[in-house]
Design a protein around this nucleic acid. Structure first.
Length: 289
DNA sequence: ACTGTAATCGAATCTGCTAT
DNA sequence: ATAGCAGATTCGATTACAGT
């Protein structure tokens, strides 16, 4: 098994062609070409393609689930997609993308859950689709087109952070569950320090990119200073990191605060209005300021 | 009182643009 | 470069309503 690469994107489009039209999967240029993204140089008429969003969302989520299933196959653990964990505020209308749990159920108790993954992946390369020959050709990495992939988008990251904060402040039961955000692109410069901060504060255990070679030529960052962001180059690296989290999760907050202190902090942070404000308050309090 | 259909709503998916 | 807004589409659940 391989981590995310061009073949997966090819597979995604080929799969979808069984039931979706080219118009649903690609942007159509004025001169009739079907492109995955608008090239930076394109000056013609444009619309914002929406019909592909949930398709790639589902595809990548399933891909991530299968990947972790493969990693955890020899253990007594299950990978569950769209899991509900009512006790920590993850209900049926906003389930967790992918979790690893000790029971193979859609509805889980907090104790059952070993880790929660928030998946944020999209098409990284640009592709041209030829309708006559039904063939795909890659025409550039994300530097050549307008669409920024997952981890390079600030609001995508902010939303992931928001969801994680929401879980953290929802219940004391959530404090032992590691949260990891999964993507397939490098984390933007500005967020590396924040990712480290979030990791050190114990809120989010990592932003993990499962795309070893996101650029056609040139290097991307392997990890942020404290490992809040990491790029994985093969499956065994990923396996190691997951296992490390499993070993460490027992005393996750132990060195920081007692349950009573933590409860107070959560209560105070929850009084803030927005996710971002809740998050900032939480971070401030947990660091004793 | 029940059934079936339609409209509505909330949340989620990702991409494009713009103000700062 | 970052934050924030707006947008199309989908899914499922809820609500509303009409017709037995």
């Amino acid at each position: 098994m391989k981590l995310w690469n061009k073949n997966h994107e090819r597979l995604f489009f080929n799969r979808c062609r069984n039931f979706a039209s080219p118009e649903q999967l690609f942007n159509q240029t004025e001169d009739g070409r079907f492109l995955a993204y608008w090239p930076k140089s394109y000056r013609g008429r444009k619309t914002t393609l929406q019909s592909r969003n949930s398709l790639i969302g589902k595809f990548s989520e399933k891909w991530v689930a299968d990947l972790f299933r493969h990693i955890t196959q020899d253990k007594n653990l299950f990978v569950v997609q769209q899991a509900q964990i009512p006790s920590i505020g993850i209900g049926y209308n906003s389930p967790a993308d992918v979790v690893i749990a000790t029971r193979n159920k859609k509805v889980l108790r907090a104790d059952d859950v070993k880790i929660i993954f928030e998946v944020k992946m999209s098409i990284v390369w640009n592709w041209i689709y030829d309708i006559d020959s039904d063939s795909l050709t890659e025409i550039g990495d994300y530097r050549t087109h307008k669409g920024k992939p997952s981890f390079t988008r600030s609001d995508s990251i902010l939303k992931a952070i928001g969801k994680c904060i929401d879980i953290r402040v929802s219940s004391i039961d959530a404090s032992k569950i590691p949260l990891v955000v999964i993507g397939n692109a490098p984390l933007s410069n500005g967020f590396c320090k924040k990712a480290d901060y979030l990791k050190n504060a114990g809120i989010i255990q990592g932003f993990w990119s499962l795309n070893p070679y996101p650029l056609n030529h040139g290097n991307t960052r392997k990890s942020s200073h404290d490992g809040g962001y990491m790029r994985f180059d093969d499956i065994s690296e990923l396996k190691d990191s997951v296992e490390e989290l499993f070993v460490n999760d027992l005393n996750f907050f132990s060195g920081m605060k007692s349950p009573e202190q933590l409860g107070k902090i959560i209560e105070i942070a929850d009084n803030e209005l927005t996710y971002q404000e809740k998050g900032m308050k939480f971070i401030k309090l947990i660091n004793g300021s």
